[in-house]
Design a protein around this nucleic acid. Structure first.
Length: 715
RNA sequence: GGUCGCGUAGCUCAGCUGGUUAGAGCGCUGCAUUCACAUUGCAGAGGCCACUGGUUCGAAUCCAGUCGCGACCACCA
């Protein structure tokens, strides 16, 4: 054996051997039914198909691989199903940036051409993420690999929408949507960020009263002024009318409890087409929303003023604001600096424009109630401090889910229109007949990934869904809890009646050694591949999970990885010690026929020490080893990966190496027993550091087959 | 404004279904090297487990409050 463990000489070869051995691929569901094996399922969170790996991916690969290898060694039918996500908006955004560099925009191409271009682009890159996941040692079943745009997946996802529609859970309606005029698409409430902005607040005289606003340009679309019905200053004015400055239109004063008497002037201009609150007020007033949208939408999807804006038509929003502020003249009473938070596009960070649009919504109320129920009954359990409460909070306050996106990169909605006005629609997988045209919108990416555990298993091998669903552990970062985990619960329960996972393991975000967020501008982003290259995949894996707690952020840097590289070397060298003890060296007089005293073969360099050896050392060794195995098994059964890693690390280094090997040298523990203990430790360490343990296994136990398929010690 | 989390050795973090001398990594001090590993070993320094009060025979661990830090959510026009 080499003096030091050289990861570069072994990793690629070992991974290929594992894959070739078939250890990654469990039997089909139908075959498992016959054998009665216990199933264990993990669905891999699908990385974006065109994304290079970041440290977060390394984190989920490590944790999931640990659990998966552990259960596989226990003899269960373990399915770890990998896949990639088309990541609609993300990917289209990246692609459009690429187009922009060539001086082009998406509007230069028709739908089909654009789709084809993005498809090619994604497929050029899609191997990258997968290769990198493999480099980290992921023992996933690549024969069951899925992509969200695989035809069979698209079909299942589409069928779900059709079923939702049949069950009356889909509606199409004009609502205010969060629209990014730059990205040209609407978003769900979750995709909107909020940023503090330094702005101005304007007080404008509307005649009988004045209003305060940060968005004077929207006054062109005002339909009313609202006051609090309890407000002594204004309650008598309710029912009267004021004249809108600049426009000259008469609008009513209405009462609505939403108005805060303390804020601003206590009177709010109501622009239903460009503000969610105002929309709600108009709905409460029972007004005709179609009419309001038709006549009073003053901002369009490109961020320019519409024909309803009269003189201001064609200006973009900020120009119109400036012009209006000037034109108001004496009607503008006051301008003050004002800091408030505004909704911004999570992708491009431009201000989100609330716009009225016809969109498809899923009614989430009953779906959310069922998800809450599965948390209450502990059908699904969340691991990660405080995040079960956060999930409950989300589920209790969810708005209907806007699933239409105005982009091409995604699954096209199975919605058909007969005539050009598109007032009537039919939901159907295929065109319902001649003359129908299909909706151009695609589904929100999370609509397909929200069905991931169900649709991957349903389209996999015979019987897979029956046996491998519900999955055992869903492991992902906590920052996509509402986007993904929650949606999987909503849709999974709807589709199957069962929550898609028994346990949600939420890992924390990985920060740099000083606890700072990783960002390109600071230059502190850890590239997992660089570290893997330098120190080996095992070292990075161990560094990521040692002493981490679900839901809690952790700080990691090169120092920690280096420390874990030393650990791998330690494992290797313990094996080297054993093989060297077993093979006497030439010219070493003491090694001729190693002495055997009371059944203990003494190491070749040690003098026999009959006086000390009583056999007690062996008994203590066996007892302790059993304790270690028991404890580690308990921790892994409970998915306590961080603690398990710490425990096995300490026991191996400080007990097995520091004490037991020394005891062996001095004849207190026999070499046979030590070797057996080493074997157990390689098995126990394997889920965490698979490469070095497999390498050492080959050297020390060459007759035993692959370690990945060895049996976990029974208690 | 609301919710959640965190404050333990110089640094980064475990431990917290309450129970023997509070742990690890890195760092630090001293010693050790022809006999697995210097990517090492041995020994050691270093902690009123944020603060205050409560429950208890007993609290880093449970409860309440205070202070400090962080995250998320939110329709203040």
């Amino acid at each position: 054996m080499n003096k030091n463990y050289e990861h570069k000489e072994t990793e690629a070869e070992i991974y290929a051997e594992w894959e070739k051995s078939g250890a990654f691929t469990p039997p089909s569901g139908d075959d498992v039914k016959k054998t009665g094996q216990k199933p264990f399922t993990v669905i891999m969170p699908p990385p974006n198909a065109n994304d290079p790996l970041h440290v977060g991916h390394a984190m989920f690969v490590t944790i999931e691989d640990i659990l998966v290898r552990f259960h596989r060694m226990k003899g269960e039918a373990v399915l770890w199903l990998p896949g990639t996500d088309h990541a609609g908006i993300e990917t289209q955004f990246v692609f459009e940036k690429k187009l922009a560099k060539q001086g082009k925009s998406r509007f230069d191409f028709d739908r089909d051409t654009l789709y084809k271009m993005i498809w090619d682009y994604v497929h050029e890159n899609s191997g990258v993420a997968i290769d990198q996941v493999k480099k980290l040692g992921a023992s996933a079943d690549w024969s069951r690999y899925k992509f969200t745009l695989d035809p069979e997946i698209v079909k299942e996802v589409t069928k779900t929408f059709i079923k939702l529609h049949e069950d009356g859970l889909i509606y199409r309606g004009v609502r205010l949507v969060n629209f990014c005029t730059k990205c040209g698409t609407a978003y769900s409430e979750l995709e909107v960020d909020h940023e503090e902005r330094e702005d101005k607040i304007y007080k404008i005289n509307y005649g009988k009263l004045s209003v305060a606003t940060t968005r004077p340009e929207t006054m062109l679309g005002d339909v009313a002024v609202a006051v609090n019905p309890e407000d002594p200053r204004y309650k008598n004015l309710i029912g009267e009318k004021v004249t809108l400055p600049l426009v000259g239109r008469e609008i009513p004063i209405v009462g609505d409890a939403m108005v805060d008497m303390e804020f601003g002037t206590g009177a709010v201009k109501i622009t239903p087409t460009h503000d969610q609150n105002d929309w709600d007020v108009a709905v409460r007033q029972g007004w005709n929303m179609d009419e309001i949208v038709l006549n009073h939408q003053v901002i369009g999807t490109k961020g320019k003023m519409t024909a309803n804006a009269g003189l201001y038509e064609g200006m973009n929003v900020s120009e119109a604001r400036e012009k209006i502020v000037t034109d108001l003249g004496s009607a503008l009473i006051e301008t003050k600096p004002y800091t408030h938070s505004v909704g911004t596009c999570y992708r491009c960070h431009r201000t989100i424009e609330p716009l009225p649009m016809k969109q498809f919504f899923i009614k989430v109320k009953t779906l959310a109630e069922n998800a809450l129920k599965s948390l209450d009954t502990e059908e699904s359990v969340v691991m990660g401090s405080g995040h079960d409460k956060i999930l409950r909070h989300w589920l209790s306050n969810l708005r209907d889910w806007n699933v239409s996106r105005q982009i091409v990169w995604g699954i096209r909605m199975p919605v058909w229109y007969k005539d050009e006005t598109k007032t009537e629609f039919v939901v159907s997988e295929m065109s319902p007949g001649k003359g129908y045209t299909q909706e151009t919108d695609t589904f929100d990416t999370w609509f397909s990934s929200g069905q991931w555990p169900v649709v991957t298993l349903k389209t996999s091998k015979q019987g897979d869904f029956d046996v491998y669903y519900p999955t055992d552990v869903m492991e992902t970062a906590y920052d996509i809890l509402p986007f993904w985990v929650m949606r999987m619960m909503l849709l999974g329960i709807y589709m199957t009646g069962k929550s898609p996972f028994k346990c949600v393991y939420l890992h924390g975000l990985v920060r740099d050694e000083q606890g700072r967020k990783m960002s390109k501008s600071i230059g502190n982003v850890i590239n997992p591949l660089e570290l893997t290259d330098k120190y080996g995949a095992d070292s990075l894996r161990m560094a990521l999970v040692m002493s981490t707690t679900p839901g809690q952020d952790s700080n990691t840097g090169e120092n920690k990885v280096r420390g874990m590289r030393n650990f791998g070397n330690k494992i290797w060298n313990a094996g080297r010690f054993i093989t060297e003890m077993e093979t006497p060296r030439e010219g070493d007089s003491k090694s001729e026929g190693q002495e055997i005293v009371d059944g203990v073969r003494l190491p070749r360099h040690s003098a026999p020490r009959n006086d000390e050896f009583t056999g007690e050392g062996n008994e203590n060794f066996k007892t302790k080893l059993q304790e270690v195995q028991k404890e580690l098994t308990r921790l892994l059964e409970a998915n306590k990966v961080g603690l398990a890693a710490e425990s096995v690390y300490n026991e191996f280094w400080h007990w097995f190496c520091d004490e037991s090997i020394e005891n062996c040298k001095s004849g207190k523990v026999s070499l046979e027993l030590l070797k057996n203990g080493y074997k157990s430790f390689l098995i126990m360490l394997h889920p965490f550091v698979p490469f070095v343990t497999e390498s050492a296994w080959k050297e020390v136990f060459p007759q035993e087959g692959l370690l990945i398929s060895a049996n976990w010690p029974k208690e």
